[in-house]
Design a protein around this nucleic acid. Sequence first.
DNA 1: GGGGGTGTTCATTTATAATTGAACTTAATG
DNA 2: CATTAAGTTCAATTATAAATGAACACCCCC
Lengths: 143, 143
Amino acid sequence: MTQALGMPRSLGEIYGLLFATPRPLAFQDIVDRLEMSKGSVSQGLRFLRTVGAIKPVVVTGDRREFFEPVVELRQLVAGFLRERLNPQIETWGARAKALKPTDFALETLSEEGRDTLDNRLEKLKTWQKRAGMVLPMVSKLLG
Amino acid sequence: MTQALGMPRSLGEIYGLLFATPRPLAFQDIVDRLEMSKGSVSQGLRFLRTVGAIKPVVVTGDRREFFEPVVELRQLVAGFLRERLNPQIETWGARAKALKPTDFALETLSEEGRDTLDNRLEKLKTWQKRAGMVLPMVSKLLG
DNA sequence: GGGGGTGTTCATTTATAATTGAACTTAATG
DNA sequence: CATTAAGTTCAATTATAAATGAACACCCCC
């Protein structure tokens, strides 16, 4: 799944290992078990944390950080939308707003052509609005 | 956006060109304008067609195939879900169903551990069900 | 304030995915 | 039926993204 959504396989491996282990794991556990470099694990864990797919667990008397998977689909999806999709949609929407048909045209236009482009430019803006409204609903529906 | 969703940039370029041109374009037009190889354009158009992001237009008296962008967000999203996400979710769901906790365990388990894994395995199955229900709704909401 | 364990950073290497281009198919045309 | 234009295929190349690993910071404890 991580690959279908354009993320590295290693993320899926780390999450999968945590998911398949009924106790929290520490950094080094993951390195050993997956035979993965410390660099990859470090970056993978950071990303998984920022999207809220794992949560740190404190084990008293052990200064290592342990991790547990977040298993609520809603949280996983919400994190993906928030961190990956929304930022893209926002920068893209901002550009769409700034566009004028004249910027947009790739060739000299007939009047009909200008109308078509005006229409499409409007579409672009409504896309952005709809996406902004619907994505939050998706997380809710999955919760 | 195509890149955010894990697709090649060239797809976005082709779609963008069609979107920014208020008349249908032929294969060779795209090759010329984007200075892209025939191979890439051929594959790009094929993909865009299978996800329903462009539609062929017949121009009488011209044996070339022309293409127009599909500008309905709903159709674009539906195509992406249908061709990219759903197949993944299905194979993934099928594997989840076939899994038994014993396949799943990466180590010898306490009783508590077995419970945790049973739980997670259940989660996996509900994920699949929810995804199957919600994704079609998403297309509708965007329509 | 040195030493060992824990984790991060980032330049280099490696693996993966995308693009090219030449050879090929298909179909229309004279 | 030879010719030419339109589009496809796929092995080789190139570009991009991910993984590695060595050097570096950060405690904490004695």
